[in-house]
Design a binder for these strands. Structure first.
Ligand SMILES: [Zn+2]
Ligand SMILES: [Zn+2]
Ligand SMILES: [Zn+2]
Ligand SMILES: [Zn+2]
Lengths: 139, 139
DNA sequence: TTATAAATGAGAATATTTATCATTATCATA
DNA sequence: TATGATAATGATAAATATTCTCATTTATAA
């Protein structure tokens, strides 16, 4: 239940927080702050955009969600299920697919070691055209 | 010579374009549009920020520079020497180091194939703390 | 040299995100 | 359950990054 997760994160259980977390759980995908805002408005909820940004950032700090900075404007957020993954993003339709590759993950560690870096995070995004015929046709 | 590269790119050879390209060649590193703007102002050049953005975007389109969207606000630009590479970014001092790993590059292609994606581009950024003692100490 | 088309620079406009602050809601305690 | 200290909210302003507009200047080919 959302309330428990929010409490566990050390945050007060408020209506906006419950609504945002529920939406992320229901939707599943990768949503921008504005997406979340508009979807909640569409559901008849009263919420402010500033609150959405604030809460998403708090959820990120608490480890409930991850933020991704794909190309093009807005950050997107998704629930953090603890399973790190990287992304394929379609430049035509915006579809996002997820993947993990242990070989890549391991190579990154080796590279960081060689450069004397301590890894805190990483982001691998493959941009391209997804399998949809409309996205594959070149113009 | 810069003039030739600009002409080759199908762009008129103008003072701002030559200055920006020279700066990128001289500096070598990863500069934001604002960095470029301020460095040129510091050299006594008269140039507008809008022109810097415009020209960098044109250079990117022409394949003279690459744009990277690291975490935290501004895009950064570097000369495109045709040698693709990915980046290590220090979260403390901002240092940027470059690397290429053929294994990672190949794995990406395999992943895209499996998902039916046609790769157009990709970005791999490893964030962490670089070797500098000031950056390694945790607080 | 001149005409034409393109480029520039200043500032307005847009887009995304964060900060401010008066009001409201939460929740531990009584 | 009522209360009050404290934290959260939402409207709006502000900050940040980038793009657009347009009058003026500049490049280049004839
Ligand atoms: Zn990964
Ligand atoms: Zn994902
Ligand atoms: Zn790469
Ligand atoms: Zn680089």
């Amino acid at each position: 239940m959302e309330k428990h997760e929010i409490k566990k994160a050390g945050l007060k259980v408020t209506l906006p927080r419950v609504k945002i977390l529920s939406l992320l759980e229901k939707h599943g995908g990768h949503l921008s702050a504005e997406d979340v805002y508009k979807l909640l408005l569409g559901e008849g909820e009263e919420i402010g955009l500033a609150t959405v940004y604030r809460v998403l950032t708090q959820f990120q700090t608490a480890g409930l969600v991850v933020r991704h900075n794909f190309e093009g404007g807005q950050s997107v957020f998704e629930l953090d299920h603890g399973d790190h993954h990287d992304h394929l993003v379609c430049l035509r339709c915006g579809r996002v697919e997820e993947f993990v590759d242990d070989t890549i993950e391991n190579r990154q560690q080796a590279i960081a070691d060689r450069h004397g870096f301590t890894i805190k995070d990483h982001a691998l995004v493959i941009y391209g055209y997804c399998g949809d015929p409309n996205c594959q046709k070149d113009d």
